[in-house]
Amino acid sequence: EETGVRVELAEEDDGEKIAIKLWLRIEDIKKLKGKYKDNEAIEFSFDLERDVPEDVAQEMVESGYVCEGDHKTMAKAIKDRVSLIKRK
């Protein structure tokens, strides 16, 4: 499903790190509610043992990086990427 958002690794995952750096990349602004630039990327750290995707997305909303209306879309994108990383 195309959401307009993609999360990718910002650094090589060696399988050892607990906290990883990720990029939340805006790919299609028409599919989102907030005002973003095409190909805008937000770099953030995610602790694989402690962080919760919904909470991280909420922090982005509170910091003004993400529109409240896009919270669920961002949280799902983060959750999907993190579950792929954890499965390795």
Rank of each mutant, 00 (worst) to 15 (best):
R6P: 03
A57Y: 03
K79I: 03
E16T: 13
K31Q: 07
F46R: 02
L84H: 11
V56F: 12
D14C: 09
K21R: 13
I20P: 08
K31A: 07
S45P: 09
F46Q: 00
V82S: 02
V61I: 11
Q58K: 12
V66G: 02
R81P: 01
K72Q: 14
L22C: 13
S63N: 13
D38L: 13
E68S: 13
P53Y: 01
K86C: 05
A77L: 11
V61D: 02
T73M: 10
V52K: 14
G4E: 06
K76L: 09
K35M: 09
V7H: 02
E8K: 07
K33W: 03
G34V: 02
D28K: 13
I85P: 05
T73P: 04
E49A: 12
A10T: 07
R87N: 11
V66R: 00
D28E: 04
E12A: 11
L48A: 02
W23A: 15
Q58S: 10
M74E: 04
C67T: 07
H71T: 12
D13M: 12
I78K: 05
R81V: 04
H71R: 13
T73I: 13
S83P: 06
M60F: 06
D55C: 10
K86D: 06
S83C: 08
I29A: 15
V56N: 00
G15K: 10
M74C: 12
I42D: 00
Q58W: 14
S83R: 10
G64M: 07
V82G: 00
L32F: 08
D14T: 09
S45H: 12
I20Q: 05
R25S: 07
R87V: 03
E27S: 13
K86A: 04
F46E: 01
E16I: 05
F44I: 10
V66I: 14
L48N: 00
R25I: 15
D80G: 01
I18H: 13
E62A: 11
E49P: 01
V52Q: 10
S45T: 15
E16P: 03
A41Q: 14
R6G: 03
N39K: 14
R25W: 08
A77D: 03
I18W: 08
E16M: 08
I78G: 02
R81L: 02
G69Y: 09
E16W: 00
D14G: 08
K33L: 01
F46Y: 14
C67K: 06
I85T: 03
L84Y: 09
E62P: 00
D28T: 02
E16A: 08
V52S: 15
A41H: 11
E12K: 09
D70P: 01
K35T: 13
K72E: 15
K17D: 09
G34Y: 06
D51K: 05
A41P: 14
K76C: 06
A19I: 15
E59N: 12
K76H: 04
D80F: 05
R81C: 13
D80Y: 05
M60S: 02
G15D: 10
F44W: 05
D38T: 14
E49G: 07
K30Y: 05
G15P: 10
E62Q: 12
A41V: 15
R6N: 08
V7T: 05
A10D: 08
L9M: 13
K86V: 02
G15Y: 09
R87E: 08
E59F: 07
A57G: 00
E68R: 09
Y65E: 07
R81D: 02
V52R: 13
G34D: 05
L48G: 03
R87K: 12
E59D: 11
K79C: 05
A75E: 01
L84K: 14
Y65F: 13
S45I: 14
Y36D: 07
L32G: 07
I29Y: 15
E16C: 12
G4A: 07
H71P: 01
K79F: 10
A19Q: 14
D38Q: 13
D47W: 05
E16Y: 08
L32Q: 06
R25N: 10
E8G: 05
G64I: 00
L9R: 03
K76S: 09
S63I: 07
S63D: 09
L48P: 08
G4L: 02
L32K: 06
E12G: 11
H71I: 15
V5F: 15
A77W: 06
D70I: 03
K37E: 11
V61Y: 01
P53F: 00
R25H: 11
M74A: 09
L84G: 10
I26A: 13
M60L: 15
M74K: 00
I42R: 03
P53V: 06
K17C: 08
Y65L: 15
